[in-house]
Design a binder for these strands. Structure first.
Lengths: 187, 187
DNA sequence: TAAATAACTAAACGGTTGTTTAGTTATGAG
DNA sequence: CTCATAACTAAACAACCGTTTAGTTATTTA
């Protein structure tokens, strides 16, 4: 019937994601996105609705990239050791391209914590809930912990992930390793 | 010679601080600041230069508030127990007025991590450096740790403060306590 | 090849951004 | 009381924000 798109939506959304990741939502303008994505503003709006929609798609794109390590995480049965691997893998993902941008999800959680945004908040809460549930499952695998301890440790790990995001911005492999090892020392 | 200011600079900067704290730097506009501070834009510029200068002053104001617990922290000699108290006090400060805004310094560190801002970065780095040095001093007080372990633990605590900031946004005293106790369990 | 249609470009939209200006008001010192 | 001076108000500034429009170009299908 008509023309085909010159660009691939998955490719340009990944570029958008990296820009949001680096600068945060508020500090990223459509002009910057236009340049980074290499397509016209109109095309962005045609494909993704608006800036907010583009951001949501960017987060989904990030979660998709995370999914590879998430699947490995789910399908293993080594308990706490799996969580530790997950931490190491998470920090590795945050360091691609030599960046020190932390974790996009954690950054978003931080940026929107004082701001009411139903869609973002739902997205973040469901992610945190899923992650906590996974932590609990893994923690249950090891030894003879009571349920109270398990929940306590899962909460601890969920918050420790914020420290991990900060760690991933440190340009020092040793420091990162130290942080992770210290975190898991007493579980 | 001429009129006196109707407003007190220290009072209005505190109001500005709370707004920056709640929304972050980029998402806070001069219009919002004008309203919150209760003075005209012109007066803001006359007193604080520009938005960036106002933000720097706001951070200084925050650090000044932090200073009360910082002094108590410095002047005590209970070692690790002091650091734990510092964590509890930090989280308490982050919760004034029933807010869940985290720590302004941590938030700022997160927001500006991908953005080049010499003044902000210097400010953050010097704060982190000072805090780490204090942690090291406190850690040295306890028992017979070797220097390598001390530095490792200090780095861990510095990053754990990011988890603490996230914890302070959780509306659950028990969870916060659990996080802190878990953090200090293996030092 | 021709008509249909979607993707493209570029310019403009109204609103808001951070910042400055011009003009008024109040209060200090002489 | 007066006048110099600084703090005030309100309006305007250019630049940029996210978003939309109008008009052009290219490609598909019949």
């Amino acid at each position: 019937m008509a023309r085909k798109k010159k660009y691939n939506e998955d490719e340009v959304i990944e570029k958008a994601m990296h820009l949001f990741w680096r600068n945060g939502y508020a500090a990223t303008s459509m002009q910057m996105l236009e340049k980074e994505m290499g397509i016209n503003k109109f095309s962005i709006y045609a494909s993704f609705g608006n800036k907010h929609g583009l951001f949501l798609k960017s987060i989904q794109c990030y979660k998709k990239q995370l999914n590879s390590i998430f699947e490995a995480f789910k399908n293993s049965n080594k308990g706490i050791e799996d969580i530790k691997d997950f931490f190491y893998n998470s920090v590795r993902i945050c360091q691609i391209e030599g960046n020190q941008k932390g974790c996009l999800l954690t950054n978003t959680y931080n940026e929107f914590s004082g701001i009411e945004d139903k869609q973002i908040n739902e997205l973040m809460n469901s992610f945190m809930k899923d992650l906590k549930e996974l932590f609990i499952q893994k923690l249950r695998m090891n030894s003879k912990k009571d349920e109270e301890t398990i929940v306590k440790q899962a909460n601890y790990l969920l918050l420790a992930k914020h420290g991990l995001a900060a760690a991933s911005r440190v340009n020092n492999e040793k420091e990162i390793e130290d942080y992770i090892e210290m975190t898991f020392k007493n579980l």
